[in-house]
């Protein structure tokens, strides 16, 4: 906090504050509502990872990928560039970049807890990503597609997913305190 007041006193532009949660939640809800009205479905993210993974797998091992019961249909559907979710994911990158840039919040860093080294952070990030990638395929969606979008349609599926997500988040966070505290 002292660094903050110093930089303000010197008039240097620090990062502008994040939006209050209520305002950011309303903005996110309106973005979701607009998406429903334009596309007929909600927002997502892991669907892009699936198409990218199928594409990577197809380039490395085309025969095995075509024969795979899960990836086969994705490869047949064609390039990931033909999928709505790919352009939505590209849009997320652009939107986050523009927002962060306009508010002085671009922060090139390996963000981590105070007790974790860079290389440990990379290991945790990769393992966490792998669990998430696997879990999203199992659940048929992620926090965006099932939790947020499913929840907004009051789908039972969305709330079952969110219950699992929050319970496991708390349990793993308690068991692995040192990662972020």
């Amino acid at each position: 906090m002292t660094a903050h007041s110093h930089s303000q006193a010197r008039g240097r532009a620090g990062p502008r504050p994040f939006w209050p949660p209520l305002a950011a939640g309303i903005a996110l809800g309106l973005a979701l509502l607009v998406t429903f009205l334009i596309s007929g479905h909600g927002l997502g993210a892991s669907g892009f990872v699936t198409r990218l993974a199928a594409d990577v797998s197809d380039r490395v091992a085309p025969a095995a990928t075509a024969a795979n019961a899960y990836f086969g249909p994705f490869v047949q559907a064609g390039s990931p560039l033909a999928a709505w979710i790919t352009w939505e994911a590209v849009g997320v990158l652009i939107g986050a970049y523009l927002g962060a840039r306009s508010a002085g919040r671009i922060s090139v860093q390996v963000e981590r807890g105070p007790n974790v080294s860079r290389s440990q952070r990379f290991v945790y990030a990769f393992i966490g990503g792998a669990l998430t990638g696997f879990g999203a395929r199992l659940a048929r969606g992620c926090t965006s597609g099932l939790g947020l979008s499913g929840g907004a349609t009051l789908a039972v599926a969305g709330f079952v997913f969110l219950a699992g997500f929050f319970i496991a988040g708390f349990v793993v966070s308690m068991a692995m305190r040192r990662v972020w505290q």
């Binding site: 998430t132 990638g133 199992l138 988040g169």
Partner: peptide, 15 residues
Amino acid sequence: MAGGGVLIGAGFALG
């Protein structure tokens, strides 16, 4: 979906 939610919750807490 419950199992996938658990894995994503764990992956989020870790990653």
